Amino acid sequence: MGNIFKTFGAAAFSGLLLAGCASTAHVEKDKSVNLNNYKTFAWVDTRESKNDTVKTKVSDLTERTIRDAVNEELEKVGWKQSKKPDVLLTYDLLVERAVKEENNPVYSQPLTRYYYNPYSRRWIPVYYPSEFLGYDRDRRPVREGTITIRLIDAKNDKTIWQGWTTDEVASRNLTGKEIRNGVKSIFRKFDVAKN
């Protein structure tokens, strides 16, 4: 019986640790739309403007990675790619510089002092606990990557659902792992917004 509790405790701790590492995702949905009515999708190019002759500039490897990650998540909920889709998919990737500010609490060191009591002729310990002194503020430059996924109704060209996530990244481009983790974070909220 003790082993069951140890195993369950380790699994729960691992789950909390993984949840803490995941980036926070946000979603918006057209409230008048029931996503259960959609079952097929296709990808469309994203351009900066109507006159732009080149779609959003990302490498073909990055594009394949994001499309494969989104396809996998949609196929998990029973959607399929189609030449006559219910939904058109677009994405945006953005990596920009930002400043991250961290506020760390600062405490004094606890200490014990001894006082001599001449009446009892004994040394008496007096404990002083640590005290809150304020915050140590740290500002450092970081790069933040944002992934946005949009679902557009193929009949009326209206956005029916969008999800996005922003997280700190290591370089000017998002890695495949960062893309897959971001897409998973976004689609964890897909079922919540489905009805």
Rank of each mutant, 00 (worst) to 15 (best):
A22I: 04
A22R: 05
S23A: 14
T24Y: 10
E28S: 06
E28W: 13
E28I: 03
K29T: 02
D30F: 01
V33G: 01
V33K: 09
N34V: 07
L35P: 00
Y38H: 05
K39Y: 04
K39D: 06
K39W: 06
T40K: 02
A42F: 00
V44K: 14
T46P: 05
R47C: 13
S49G: 05
D52Q: 10
K55C: 04
T56Q: 10
T56C: 06
T56V: 05
K57D: 04
V58A: 08
L61K: 03
L61R: 03
E63I: 03
R64Q: 08
T65W: 03
I66D: 02
D68E: 07
N71D: 13
E72S: 11
E72M: 11
E72H: 12
E72T: 13
E73D: 08
E75Q: 10
E75W: 01
K76A: 11
K76D: 09
V77D: 02
W79V: 00
K80Q: 09
Q81V: 04
Q81L: 03
Q81W: 02
Q81F: 05
S82V: 01
K84S: 08
P85C: 02
V87C: 00
Y91N: 01
Y91W: 09
D92T: 09
L93G: 01
L93F: 05
L93M: 12
L94Q: 07
L94Y: 04
L94K: 09
R97G: 14
R97H: 08
A98F: 07
A98I: 03
A98H: 03
V99T: 09
V99Y: 06
V99R: 10
V99I: 15
K100T: 04
K100E: 14
E101T: 11
E102K: 13
N104D: 11
N104W: 06
N104E: 15
N104K: 15
Q109S: 14
P110T: 15
T112I: 05
Y114N: 14
Y115C: 05
Y116P: 13
N117V: 14
N117R: 14
P118N: 11
Y119V: 12
S120G: 10
P125M: 06
V126E: 13
Y128P: 10
P129E: 07
S130H: 13
E131W: 07
L133E: 12
L133I: 09
Y135R: 02
D136R: 15
D138F: 10
D138W: 12
R139M: 08
R139F: 05
R140G: 01
V142P: 08
R143L: 13
R143S: 14
T148F: 01
R150N: 13
R150G: 11
L151M: 15
L151T: 09
I152V: 08
D153L: 02
A154R: 11
K155V: 08
K155C: 02
K155P: 01
N156Q: 08
N156H: 10
D157S: 10
K158A: 11
I160C: 02
I160Y: 06
I160L: 04
W161R: 03
W161V: 00
Q162D: 01
Q162W: 05
W164I: 04
